[in-house]
Amino acid sequence: MAAGGDHGSPDSYRSPLASRYASPEMCFVFSDRYKFRTWRQLWLWLAEAEQTLGLPITDEQIQEMKSNLENIDFKMAAEEEKRLRHDVMAHVHTFGHCCPKAAGIIHLGATSCYVGDNTDLIILRNALDLLLPKLARVISRLADFAKERASLPTLGFTHFQPAQLTTVGKRCCLWIQDLCMDLQNLKRVRDDLRFRGVKGTTGTQASFLQLFEGDDHKVEQLDKMVTEKAGFKRAFIITGQTYTRKVDIEVLSVLASLGASVHKICTDIRLLANLKEMEEPFEKQQIGSSAMPYKRNPMRSERCCSLARHLMTLVMDPLQTASVQWFERTLDDSANRRICLAEAFLTADTILNTLQNISEGLVVYPKVIERRIRQELPFMATENIIMAMVKAGGSRQDCHEKIRVLSQQAASVVKQEGGDNDLIERIQVDAYFSPIHSQLDHLLDPSSFTGRASQQVQRFLEEEVYPLLKPYESVMKVKAELCL
């Protein structure tokens, strides 16, 4: 049975990233139509530049190519590739079939990587351009969430054990800070992308030097003109047959890092959902379990974690691919890159769409948070109580021993009897502590235990987050809708 299948058929496997999760716009960027249309555009740009620099290419040939950029006979191309065992030459023939007058000058002087690699770089750039505003929107939604809850005390956790208090907004800023680093890295790697350009079979530009009869300047002009037509500021000066596969490492490393950030955020949300302090959106008709109707599973956060793990592992592909590119190139890269580049971007696209949807509907339960604080705060307040007693004339050592005994009794009630923490009640009825009984409410005010959390939130948002989001103001209103 021949390899390949009808990918629109229910009898043929289709990647869930495309069929179930990723956005239509990201799927289109990695589609065959987008790819092969870009090949034709690159052939047109090459012909236009070659004509401008004096090669015998007519206006009629150029116009014929322009008129057929979208006229792609995919069936013919597939048949040609089956016959020739070469995808680029299959599309040269297919393009030439609908451009008979231009057929002889299509791909003039070029090698397969002229269309293959340059198209990949265009796709990487455009895919990054799709991700950047999506990530900015996630940051914006979380920034709104953090600002609104900047002063809401909550129990902090280290080692997932109760620690000092923080605020809900401050905790959210930990998430935002990681995503801001990801946004900066995505922008950097996007701006650092260079075009492969017009380089020939081993990167020496020998074929173009021959076409222009040894004119170095025209060869350099050709490279520059096509690079500018493709919208790049610069091209690699040095290439082998391909652009260095280190570029793929750079791009997928940034995406993998984004995956790590999203995994951490969504894990926190899942843990908070278990504590009943916070939940992701839950639709009115949504079913959490087929057997347990009360369940409210954090399905979206779980999906993000599941896909983020996949995204983090994909960076190993370009690392290994770059390491086995012998001399000017081997074909070890080809099949692998067809999979890992598309999957990385479709996965990143999915987790950003999902995280935006989550961040637009996060639900906080202040009463649950308050109750958990009441359970733990008495123990945390013991040092403040000791200091207040010393100020009232008591002995630190005597007070410490009193607190120690009462704390152990209260802990026994919590752990052995399943009761509430009654340390404060014990202190309130103990005559030894009568000098500070009137101060206990103040000493137990949760806001006095959150330090500068709310001020940190305000400063972080104003100095770091809002300036970073400013270039994306025009796209901030787009909502994230999930079908599944």
Results as ranks from 00 to 15, higher is better:
Ser359Val: 09
Val315Ser: 10
Arg404Glu: 03
Lys170Met: 06
Phe30Lys: 01
Thr313Val: 10
Arg337Thr: 00
Lys470Tyr: 14
Ala335Pro: 06
Gly451Met: 01
Cys304Gln: 02
Val198Thr: 14
Asp178Ile: 01
Leu130Thr: 13
Ser334Asn: 11
Phe212Ile: 05
Pro24Gln: 14
Tyr13Met: 13
Tyr34Ile: 01
Gln61Ala: 10
Thr58Asn: 11
Arg245Phe: 00
Asp178Met: 01
Ala388His: 03
Gly231Gln: 09
Ser19Tyr: 12
Val88Lys: 00
Asp268Cys: 09
Thr347Cys: 13
Asp182Ile: 07
Asp216Glu: 09
Cys266Trp: 06
Leu132His: 13
Asp144Thr: 15
Cys113Gly: 12
Ile122Leu: 15
Asn297Glu: 01
Phe95Asp: 00
Met299Phe: 05
Arg337Phe: 03
Val29Trp: 04
Asp120Gln: 00
Ala322Glu: 10
Lys147Trp: 12
Thr321Val: 09
Ser448His: 15
Ser447Ala: 13
Glu280Phe: 00
His437Val: 09
Asp32Ala: 14
Phe160Asn: 07
Leu142Asp: 08
Ile57Asp: 01
Asp268Thr: 07
Lys391Phe: 01
Lys264Tyr: 03
Thr354Ile: 14
Phe195Cys: 11
Met225Ala: 11
Ile106Phe: 07
Arg188Asn: 07
Ile105Lys: 14
Gly203Ser: 01
Gly393Cys: 06
Gln241Arg: 00
Cys99Val: 12
Pro298Gly: 02
Leu209Phe: 12
Val138Asp: 09
Asn68Arg: 08
Met278Thr: 05
Lys477Cys: 15
Ala22Thr: 14
Cys266Glu: 09
Met292Asn: 08
Met387Pro: 06
Cys305Gly: 09
Ile72Tyr: 11
Phe160Tyr: 12
Leu341Thr: 14
Gln320Met: 11
Asn185Arg: 10
Glu302Asp: 06
Leu55Trp: 07
Ser261Gln: 00
Ile269Val: 10
Val226Arg: 02
Asp216Phe: 08
Arg37Tyr: 14
Ala103Val: 13
His217Ser: 11
Asp317Leu: 08
Leu186Trp: 06
Pro446Glu: 03
His7Phe: 13
Lys101Ala: 11
Met181Ser: 10
Glu425Val: 08
Ala103Ser: 09
Ser112His: 04
Asp445Glu: 12
Ser151Trp: 09
Ser207Cys: 07
Arg194Leu: 07
Val465Tyr: 06
Cys173Met: 04
Asp6Met: 15
Ala146Leu: 04
His93Cys: 15
Ala388Thr: 06
Leu377His: 05
Lys35Asp: 03
Val465Phe: 02
Ala348Ser: 13
Leu55Ser: 04
Val198Trp: 02
Leu484Phe: 15
Arg37Trp: 09
Gly156Val: 01
Ala90Cys: 14
Thr267Ile: 13
Arg83Lys: 10
Gly104Glu: 04
